[in-house]
């Protein structure tokens, strides 16, 4: 039981971090559009050009590209 005296405060810290992370996500607009990312990933998958496109772009792909495709 003594372990609980350590575990409970640790749990509290984790909860605080989780809330902080959640607030960051909300303020960042992560929950604002729940539709488009779900669709865009499907389009890229079915696209016959997809593999070629990725190979061409791979060396110079910018962080924005990855963000929007994934």
């Amino acid at each position: 039981m003594a372990a609980l005296y350590v575990m409970i405060p640790v749990a509290l810290i984790i909860v605080a971090l989780a809330i902080k992370l959640f607030f960051w996500a909300v303020d960042n607009g992560q929950y604002e559009d729940l539709d488009s990312p779900a669709h865009s990933i499907l389009f890229d998958d079915e696209d016959p050009m997809h593999t070629a496109h990725m190979n061409n772009k791979a060396p110079k792909s910018s962080p924005t590209d990855e963000h929007n495709n994934g």
Binding site: D33, D35, S36, H39, D65, N68
Partner: peptide
Amino acid sequence: GWLIEKHLRKLPGVLETSLNLSN
């Protein structure tokens, strides 16, 4: 949304596009 984003990203000088489908 997919069409607009892809088409614009092909233009020289366009760095980032993202379309919000709900608004």
